[in-house]
Computed example of a mutant assay.
Amino acid sequence: MMIKNEAELQSKVEVAEKSSFDFAKWWDRVGILIVLIALIVLMSVVAPNFNRIGNLLNIARSISVNAILAAGLTFVILTGGIDLSVGSIIAVSGVVSVILAMAGTPSVLAVVLGMAAGGACGLVNGLLTSVLMLAPFIVTLGTMTFLRGLAYTITAGEPIVSSDLSFKVLGNGYVAGFPVPVIVMAAVYGVAWFLLERTTYGRHVYAVGGNAQAARLAGVRVGRVVTSVYVIAGICAGLAGAIFAARVISAQPTAGTGYELDAIAAVVLGGTSLGGGRGRIIGTLIGSVILGVLTTGLILLDVPFFTQLLIKGLVIILAVSIDSLKTKKFSFFSKTT
């Protein structure tokens, strides 16, 4: 009789699983694309000049900084961490790149050194998190404030403007009709996709986010992986800072303010779980495009800035809510209910 009851219970469980709706899988594969397509259609109808080629290229250019930032953050969030300092790293790296370029440093080297400065900031975050075992939220909240203060200190609180900035093509140039920032963004996502999807390192990142203790027992050097993802986030933020500085042809101590929230929203909207271990870099790109289309559409509709902040805040809450819903399965018409 016991065996029969167990068999009946197992049968009911299998029926429930077959009749359940996997929201996480649906959102990652279909839902996010539906949202993007629906938003583009909506803005094409209600926003004047939205679907013109020039405007679409401007949208692509405008999302490049946030998208590159979000690409780096994807690595961090996949491990179950968070980095609130990337916006401030944009400011510091931009300042470093501009000052070096104005001092006569070759443009490519100035940008690379700015990225290196971002990587160094990420290294500090990673070591504090992995070696001292400090909470990443607190660590990066502290470095966010420190680095913003550092940017203000270096610039004395004033923008450093250079009308003949040697690497300004990085933010304003075109190659074959495509904005340079968009090409750089595509390259960043290509490298990020390869690292996460085609390398052992990528599998280790997912493993640490899924279960750090199990990954450690399996031979993964968890501390090194955690440190490395913060370095990657810092390098991406450094590149984003150089692009931002090139676009405005100056070093701005206020650059990147609030960008970390947009980047986190893009990552979570794209399907990466805040709990770590699940997500795809392509989803992050789609999430960044959604935010870019939304922002541009609101501007074209002359929506006041403070109202835009309200809407962005709701989008961030929505992104976190979706992440929570993705951990649950909804059963419809289940015979067991």
Rank of each mutant, 00 (worst) to 15 (best):
I322M: 09
V175W: 14
I232M: 08
G142E: 01
K335V: 09
V108L: 15
F333S: 08
I243Q: 01
S62N: 15
A186R: 07
G256P: 04
S97K: 00
V124G: 01
A207V: 07
V139T: 09
T143F: 11
V182T: 07
G219F: 15
G157P: 10
A263I: 03
P304T: 09
W26A: 07
V65I: 13
T284G: 07
V180S: 02
P106I: 13
L128V: 04
G241M: 09
S331V: 14
V293N: 00
S64F: 05
V35D: 05
F306R: 05
I290A: 04
N172I: 07
T327K: 11
F137L: 13
F23W: 05
W26E: 03
G219K: 10
S166N: 10
P253T: 02
L310V: 08
G54P: 05
M185P: 03
R280S: 11
R52K: 15
V15A: 15
S88A: 14
E6Q: 15
I282M: 13
I40G: 02
A135S: 12
V248D: 04
A265P: 01
G292N: 00
F306D: 03
N5V: 07
S331N: 10
G114M: 05
G210R: 03
A67G: 09
T307P: 05
V45G: 13
H204T: 02
L36S: 05
S166D: 08
F50M: 12
V13L: 15
V98A: 08
T145H: 14
K329F: 11
T140L: 11
A70N: 04
I53S: 15
R29K: 09
F75L: 13
T105N: 12
